[in-house]
Design a binder for these strands. Structure first.
Length: 369
RNA sequence: GUGAUCGUAGCUCAGUUCGGUUAGAGCACCUGGUUGUGGUCCAGGAUGUCGGGGGUUCAAAUCCCCUCGGUCACC
């Protein structure tokens, strides 16, 4: 079903809205943690509840290989399988076309399983039916995400193939009435940093018509300045009553910049991956907890963030757990970084309501820019 | 006590046969990086009484002598 955005407040292009899906509502701007294989690494669904997470991602490529989409369907869908009573979104496997570099032709992509080496052919149709089985609230269409920088002909080919796959993926979804009732399907705009290709890709995606729209293929190697104009070019063309989702963005500076250009939703592995390797988000910027200067630092990770789930422990102690590779360390740091991101987004929403978004943006860029 | 063997970076070791650039590697350590996650990976950095002393030589971790320490075997 169409995902409807009810805009509650705006400040410039930045918007605070309430999105309604079949399975529930959520406010935007919204940060969505990534739980590729059915869990955010080191955390459980009850942790996610404690963090007040609203939407968690899963990944089609990984889940279709293990445990298989049939099993998840029979278990009542991804959320039920994981005992998660919030919302879910599945990525189509399009990102793995970028990261795993399978053979791609007009039909689809041929992957070799990372688990047993077996060959799997992922088509836009299969991506849609598999995601229907996974049963998330939002499914993403299969797209082609190219690495940047890229020649224009490469980007053009990706835009063409993405458009071809969009119509086939949408058609497959529309043939599946139960999925349509429970799920929303989002289209994805490609085009790299090329403005004319971004406009073309947006128009072609809109022509197919989806329940919501995503911007893909950015934050994959280009600088932040190169990524912003293409974002504006896309959001200007998108309908205001449907959510806009920037895929794969999660640094605070990038986030305020694209919110300032009308984006609503984000997912990113950055806060969780950084946490696993000892980089901590704080109100004064990121710190690398492995640094020797924290050996005897008695302060909490972010003294200004009193509600952090890690506020009981000193930097010294957590660094010790980290360098001795205690499993508790990545868990606590992941909890902290996600809580920090959610708090950041809460403050971001507040700034939009209060008409203080530009001040918030400027302060964020001073620290994270 | 006798014999063998080993001693090179914090750790494990390569290099010693046949002397020859500024003595290396992996791990650990110290910095960065990581953006729709292949439980990582990448990039950079610091580190030496070559057990000690003496000798030979233009030149010694490398050859010779003495010595200290470890390990093993046999007394």
């Amino acid at each position: 079903m169409k995902a409807v955005s009810e805009v509650i407040a705006t400040d410039g292009e930045a918007r605070l809205s309430e999105v309604t899906l079949a399975g529930g509502k959520f406010q935007t701007p919204c940060f969505m943690p990534v739980g590729t294989r059915g869990a955010v690494k080191h955390l459980s669904s009850s942790d996610m509840k404690d963090l007040n997470a609203e939407i968690i991602l899963g990944n089609t490529y990984h889940l279709m290989l293990r445990p298989g989409s049939d099993l998840i369907r029979e278990s009542g869908g991804l959320a039920k399988f994981a005992s998660w009573d919030g919302l879910t979104l599945t990525d189509s496997g399009g990102y793995q076309i970028f990261s795993l570099q399978p053979k791609v032709d007009d039909l689809g992509a041929t992957f070799r399983s990372i688990y047993d080496g077996s060959s799997h052919h992922l088509t836009p149709e299969l991506a849609s039916t598999t995601q229907a089985d996974l049963g998330a609230d939002i499914q993403m269409v299969l797209d082609v995400c190219s690495a940047l920088p890229a020649e224009k002909n490469i980007l053009k080919e990706a835009v063409d193939r993405t458009a071809l796959w969009a119509s086939r993926g949408r058609e497959a979804f529309l043939l599946h009435p139960e999925a349509q009732e429970r799920q929303s399907q989002f289209g994805i705009v490609q085009g790299g940093t090329d403005i004319s290709l971004r406009i073309e890709s947006t128009q072609r995606t809109l022509q197919v018509g989806f329940d919501g729209y995503a911007i893909g293929g950015l934050s994959v190697g280009e600088g932040r300045s190169e990524m912003l104009d293409p974002v504006s070019a896309v959001t200007e063309l998108l309908p205001k009553d449907q959510p806009r989702y920037f895929m794969g963005l999660g640094d605070p500076a990038g986030l305020v910049e694209v919110v300032g250009r009308g984006v609503d939703m984000f997912d990113c592995v950055l806060p969780t991956r950084l946490a696993r390797h000892g980089t901590v988000l704080t109100s004064e910027g990121r710190i690398n907890l492995r640094n020797a200067k924290f050996i005897a630092d008695e302060r909490p990770l972010d003294p200004a963030f009193e509600n952090s789930p890690a506020s009981n422990w000193s930097r010294s102690y957590l660094r010790h757990l980290l360098v001795t590779e205690e499993p508790t360390a990545p868990r606590i740091l992941t909890l902290h970084n996600l809580a920090w991101m959610f708090e950041f987004v809460t403050q971001l929403r507040k700034s939009i309501i209060e008409g203080e978004f530009q001040r918030f943006r400027k302060e964020t860029l001073e620290i994270w820019g």
